[in-house]
């Protein structure tokens, strides 16, 4: 085999990349994966059954891995002394840009399934819109994420069906949970600053508003077959879709930054 040199990253400013818009995109995706991964890791040890304990922990591990890789990519894009750990842990709560869908606290098992179903399906549409894009570092990572997310979708889809078919309390809880989170579901597609530049540069296939419609069309058949509420493709909280996170996130933030804050600058 002929040795091929490992390509050295070119400074972002030299390549004509829409750096600010890419920053917004990577930050939103990384924060989404980080927050849902961290929230659901709260089930480790207390999930309804042992297999689910393992599954939810494994899913969370995948999401935190995706977040770490996305923060790493963002740090490379920003250059200088940007650092993945600092991006993950050293911001104030109001500087995180995850979707408000993920701001409802862990809740019960039905809430966890409802939120994750809406998030996984939205994330799948977003990843599809980034597949084959023009910026190779992101396209490579997305290609890998898609393969892992397939298992998430399969697992959460099976739980949605199970709770919906159970009737009685499980179904009631599922409906209550969907009613609570569905109005915020489309916040995954809240408009990103400069997203037109991403579309123009061939990084993102379509504007977020269009992706929201694709997502709604993708989940409608399943939800309507199960007699469950179909969320709007426009979020009730659209204007603050990725800001103003509220009390549950303030608590989560204090949890996931606790160790880091206990000894700032320590090497782990």
């Amino acid at each position: 085999m002929t040795p091929t040199p490992v390509p050295t990253p070119t400074p972002a400013s030299a390549t004509g990349l829409p750096v600010d818009a890419l920053d917004a995109l990577l930050r939103s995706m990384a924060d989404d994966e980080f927050v849902i991964g961290f929230s659901d890791s709260e089930w480790t040890g207390i999930a309804p059954i042992l297999e689910e304990d393992i599954a939810m922990s494994s899913l969370s591990q995948d999401e935190l891995g995706h977040a770490a890789a996305l923060y790493g990519l963002l740090a490379e894009l920003l250059g200088g002394d940007a650092d993945a750990d600092a991006l993950a842990y050293d911001r104030e709560p109001d500087q995180y840009r995850h979707a408000r869908l993920l701001d409802h606290g862990r809740g019960d098992w039905a809430m966890t399934i409802a939120r994750r179903y809406l998030y996984e399906t939205a994330d799948a549409v977003r990843l599809a819109a980034l597949t084959g894009g023009s910026w190779a570092p992101l396209t490579g990572l997305v290609g890998k994420m898609v393969r892992e997310e397939r298992y998430h979708a399969m697992h959460i889809g099976a739980w949605l069906e199970r709770l919906a078919a159970a009737r009685g309390e499980p179904r009631d809880r599922l409906e209550t949970a969907l009613a609570a989170v569905a109005p915020d579901a489309a916040t995954v597609f809240a408009a990103l600053e400069g997203e037109a530049d991403l579309v123009q540069a061939g990084i993102l296939a379509a504007p977020m508003a269009e992706l929201a419609e694709r997502w709604q069309a993708a989940i409608s058949p399943t939800l309507s077959r199960l007699g469950l509420r179909i969320p709007s493709s426009t979020a009730a909280s659209a204007s603050r879709g990725r800001t103003d996170h509220g009390e549950p996130f303030a608590w989560l933030w204090s949890e996931f930054t606790m160790v880091r804050r206990s000894d700032p600058g320590a090497a782990w």
Partner: peptide, 13 residues
């Protein structure tokens, strides 16, 4: 399949 998720990220039960 008992579970899509096993003892490591790459395995199912």
């Amino acid at each position: 399949m008992d579970s899509a998720f096993g003892p490591t990220q790459c395995r199912s039960l």
